[in-house]
Design a protein around this nucleic acid. Structure first.
Length: 203
DNA sequence: ATGACGATGCACT
DNA sequence: GTGCATCGTCATG
């Protein structure tokens, strides 16, 4: 328990997206001091038919093939922005940040989003980017520098797992992760299989 | 040059 | 639950 042990744990971006996506649940994400607790993520990598990286580098997905620990920001439906953390031992990995529990700068987020409902402020990748003012200027941005502040959870939180949202391919893969019982998820996790000893529950 | 298609969100029934 | 706005990206010709 020396002084070194008291330093904040660091995120290990080299981990595979499936692992890193789980490690991010409960982490704190702030952008210019505004944000909160990550409660929902999805994992993608270059072997995944649903991933932007499956067919190799293009202009849009270039960040996924660059250094880990940077942001991959892309436009969705010509309208919304979505934030990913580039990660993995191999190129083409990323974790989509899908929802936050608002903690810091809630009033700013309310103004940016035009809503008062705290459970709808950052519930969904597009809403989250609107609330945190994430845009194309953040594509390729290092996540360990301004305006980003990211801290891992102090302890692994209770987690739920399910299928990803809005896909036409790779629909079966259980690569969506959520903070159990969180009211700040973008949507509920359909029950995939009963968990022994816990009965049928949904988050 | 052109067309198909979204890792979505919102209004509405 | 359904319909659809909206436009950058990419594959194709």
């Amino acid at each position: 328990m020396g002084q070194e042990r008291r330093r904040a744990a660091r995120l290990c971006f080299e981990r595979p997206a499936e692992v890193f996506a789980q490690a991010l649940i409960g982490a704190t994400l702030l952008v210019n001091g505004v944000g909160g607790i990550i409660v929902e993520t999805e994992a993608y990598d270059a072997t995944d038919p649903a991933s932007h990286s499956v067919n190799g580098p293009t202009r849009r997905n270039a960040a996924m093939f660059g250094p880990v620990g940077r942001a991959y920001v892309y436009r969705s439906y010509g309208l919304h922005w979505c934030l990913n953390f580039v990660c993995g031992p191999r190129p083409g990995g990323a974790v989509l940040i899908r929802a936050l529990e608002p903690r810091e700068g809630v009033e700013i987020m309310r103004r940016r989003r035009g809503t008062d409902d705290p459970t709808r402020l950052c519930a969904g990748p597009g809403r989250l980017c609107q609330a945190l003012a994430i845009g194309p200027e953040h594509d390729h941005a290092p996540l360990d520098a301004e305006p980003f502040q990211i801290a891992p959870p102090e302890a692994p939180p209770p987690m739920v797992r399910g299928t990803r949202v809005g896909l036409s391919r790779g629909v079966e893969a259980l690569l969506r992760f959520g903070l159990a019982e969180s009211p700040f998820l973008s949507r509920r996790f359909p029950l995939v299989a009963p968990i022994a000893g816990q009965g049928a529950r949904r988050s």
